[in-house]
């Protein structure tokens, strides 16, 4: 992947003042409903992530992986415990968040360019000069990023004119355009075929190494977790909690061939067995 880009890498910016850690869950739990009908989506969970870290959350379906993402992005509030983002409560966060869901969720009435530009219209400090820059600097910025993921010629297309893989690439661009400090990925490659997925893993890795955001990836694909992440947390079945927390020691950048190497296979086998155990128990 050609990494020459007109977008300055975050390294070039003045160092942010946000304290470590980037994300901290302190005994955070989520219960939907009340009384006898109450459903525990997440048992009290403690989790810390440092700035610039790439953490993958894996586990069986319904274990609360997505619930953690929703807590961090403040789409839901914890029933108990605390969720701290950059040292503040999630609702008062100062960090910029970019999020990509499993469905591309692009707005069908906007072109790819307009969709990807949306965060610049909403998020401070970009929105202040949105009116002035949307046809100039912001447009160039969107085009540069689209080009980086191989969508340079599709800026003026509508979402329905693109394939699933292209939509998911646009989705990643939208999550990254405002240079988020924190990138939240909810199985963004889940619905794609194997080849497209591997291609996007590489794009994702390049974007991560280029910009060094803090990334929290939820996935049930162990190879995806092993290929992309610097650290993998395994969650138990519903109601979920973190049962294993291991770093991935393979050096980055990783080649797609890495996933067939013995160390890699051994690591994913270990994770697989652990998940198989918590599923059956």
């Amino acid at each position: 992947m050609n990494m020459t880009s007109s977008i300055p890498a975050p390294m070039a910016k003045p160092a942010p003042v946000h304290p470590r850690p980037a994300i901290e869950l302190q005994d955070a739990s989520v219960v939907f409903g009340a009384g006898e009908k109450a459903v525990t989506a997440l048992s009290p969970t403690t989790l810390r992530m440092d700035r610039g870290e790439f953490l993958a959350l894996v586990g069986p379906s319904g274990c609360g992986k997505s619930t953690i993402l929703k807590l961090v992005s403040n789409l839901i509030q914890p029933s108990s415990g605390l969720v701290l983002i950059g040292g503040r409560e999630a609702s008062a966060r100062e960090l910029r968040i970019g999020m990509a869901f499993q469905n591309p969720t692009l707005l069908p009435w906007l072109t790819i360019e307009q969709n990807v530009m949306m965060p610049l219209k909403i998020v401070e400090p970009f929105k202040r000069t949105y009116r002035r820059d949307k046809r100039g600097a912001y447009r160039d910025r969107v085009h540069a990023l689209l080009k980086q993921v191989g969508l340079g010629d599709f800026a003026n297309h509508y979402p329905w004119q693109l394939s699933g893989g292209m939509l998911q690439r646009s989705n990643l661009c939208r999550a990254l355009i405002h240079e988020p400090d924190l990138l939240l990925l909810d199985e963004p490659f889940g619905a794609l075929d194997q080849f497209t997925r591997e291609e996007l893993w590489q794009i994702m890795q390049d974007l991560y190494l280029d910009r060094a955001p803090t990334v929290l990836l939820v996935t049930h694909d162990l190879r995806e977790a092993g290929f992309l992440a610097g650290r993998i947390c395994v969650m138990s079945a519903r109601p979920g909690r973190v049962i294993s927390d291991e770093p991935v020691t393979l050096p980055q950048p990783r080649d797609i061939a890495t996933i067939y190497s013995p160390e890699f296979v051994e690591m994913t086998q270990g994770l697989r067995e652990m998940i198989a155990q918590v599923r059956s128990s």
């Binding site: 968040i97 869901f101 906007l110 949306m118 909403i122």
Partner: peptide, 29 residues
Amino acid sequence: TEPELEDVLKTMGASKTEILWNVGLPRAM
């Protein structure tokens, strides 16, 4: 309006009015 479309803007920290202008109203057109 699909809640997922609104969630996208919510995670960006959009206000209710911004969500209405950018998602709700175009969706209702």
